[in-house]
Computed example of a mutant assay.
Amino acid sequence: MSTNVHRLPNRDTALKALYDEIGAKNMFPFWATSADVQNDEIKQLMATSRAVPFLWRCAEDIEPILNKAVELVTMDDSERRSLVLVNPGLAPKRATVSTMYTAYRLNDADEIMPPHKHSPSAVRFGLKGKGNFTGVDGENIVFGPGDLVLTPNDTWHNHGTVGGEQALNLSVLDFPLVETLNAVHFDHHYAEEVDGVMVPMKQQSERFPADYSQRIYGYGGLMPRFASKQSRGAGFSSPMFVYRWDMMRELLERHKDWEGDAHEALMVEYIDPTSGQPVFKTITFFVQMLRPGESTLPLRQTANLLVAPFEGTGHSIVDGQRFDWNAFDTLAVPGGSWCQHVNASDKDPVFLFVASDEPTQKKLDLYRKWGKTKDDAVVRLV
C-alpha cells in the first residue's frame, strides 16, 4: 500500500486536501513528514506559544503608567488598578511565564476595595509606602517594603491603602496554571452572618488581631499550642499570612559570610511554619542574596521563574541575552533557560525576590535542575 501511495501522480495535491480536511474538522495529523515540505507536523507541534526571557522596567515604564491611571481610573471605575505583565511570547494571554503572572498595583491614599476570593493563589510583595493594606480572612494586615502577604486559594481578602499616602506593591498569581486546568473561579459576594441572617458586607469583620500571623507563627521551631483553633482561610496554604522583611533580611545578613551555593548564592525560601512545605501547593517564593561583586554560575531548571530585584543593581544573563536591572523591575526566566545573576556593586548586596512553580513540578515528578561548573561542564543538580 505504501508503494501505491507514492506512485499517485497527484500526491501533493491530495495531501494538501487531506490536511485541509483534518484542520477543518479540528484535528491534528501527528505523523512526521520530511522537513522540506509545508506540512512538517513535528515543526507544527513544537511551534506552540512559548514564554521568552523578558525584562519589565518599573521606574521607566510601569510607574509612569500607574501614576496616570491614578488620575484617570477611580475605584468607582474599577476595584483594581493593576498592570499585568504579559510575556511577548505568550500574548495576548495574561501570563508573565507560562504558569504565573506578575502585576503591579498602585493604590491612592486610603483606598479600600471590597472583599473577594478566587481559586488562583496569590501574594503581595510591598515595594513603596508603609500603608499597603490587605485584609485576609479577618486579619487586617498593613505592610511595607519587602513584606510578603499571602492571599490563598478560596480565601476572602481585600486590598487598599491606609495612612494617607499612596502605596505600590507587586502581585504574583498562579492564574495561568489554574486557567490551563480550567479551574478558575471568583466570588465577589461577601456576606457575614448577623443575628442568624447572611448580610452583604463591604469589608470583613476583624476575627484575628492585626499581628496574629507574626505573633503565633513567626518563631521558627516554636509553635504555640494555645493558638486559636479557628481554621485559617480554606486550609490550602500556610496559616501564616504575612512574612516580614526585617526578619528575612536579618537572616540573610547573619549568613553573609557563609560560602553559599555557587549557582544560587544565598537563598531563603518562605515556608509554611506548621509543615515546612512551601506556602502554596502550586508555587513557592524565595529571597536570593548576592553579596558585593558576587556572580552565580549558570543554572538551568525546568521550573519557570519570576525574578524581581528588590535592592541593588546588576544584570542577569538568560540564554546568552543580558538584562540589566534595577530595584522593582521584573525578569521572566522561562523554564529550561540557562540563567546567571551578577551583582554590579562591589560595596552593596543585591536582594532578589523570586517566584517559582517548583512545587507543582515536583508533585508531578517533572522537576529537573542542572548547573555549569567554572570549566563550563554541565552537571545534574537534582
Rank of each mutant, 00 (worst) to 15 (best):
P120A: 09
K130L: 10
H189A: 15
P334T: 05
S98V: 13
V142N: 01
R105Y: 01
L252F: 03
V350F: 10
A47W: 14
D12F: 00
R232V: 15
L381G: 01
W245H: 09
S356Y: 05
R50L: 14
S49W: 14
D20S: 10
T155Y: 12
A210Y: 05
G276D: 01
E60A: 06
D195K: 12
F328P: 04
P145S: 03
V342Q: 06
P145I: 04
D324E: 12
R105F: 04
Q230H: 06
A32H: 13
N169F: 05
V84D: 12
F54M: 07
A355Y: 02
N87Q: 09
G293V: 12
T161Y: 01
P278V: 03
V318H: 06
A344P: 03
M247H: 08
V73F: 04
A69R: 10
P88Q: 09
D246A: 11
R124L: 15
K43Y: 15
G131H: 05
W31P: 13
Q44F: 13
T373W: 04
V268K: 01
S82A: 15
C339W: 02
T13K: 02
V307M: 10
L90W: 12
E165V: 13
D77S: 08
H341C: 14
G276N: 03
P292E: 14
V136C: 10
Q277I: 07
P209K: 06
F328K: 00
L127E: 00
A59K: 11
P209G: 04
N169P: 01
T151F: 04
Y190D: 05
S98Y: 08
E63D: 10
V342I: 12
P239S: 07
S82M: 10
A227I: 10
L66F: 02
T161V: 08
N182K: 15
I283H: 00
Q203V: 15
E193Y: 09
Y270A: 06
E71Q: 12
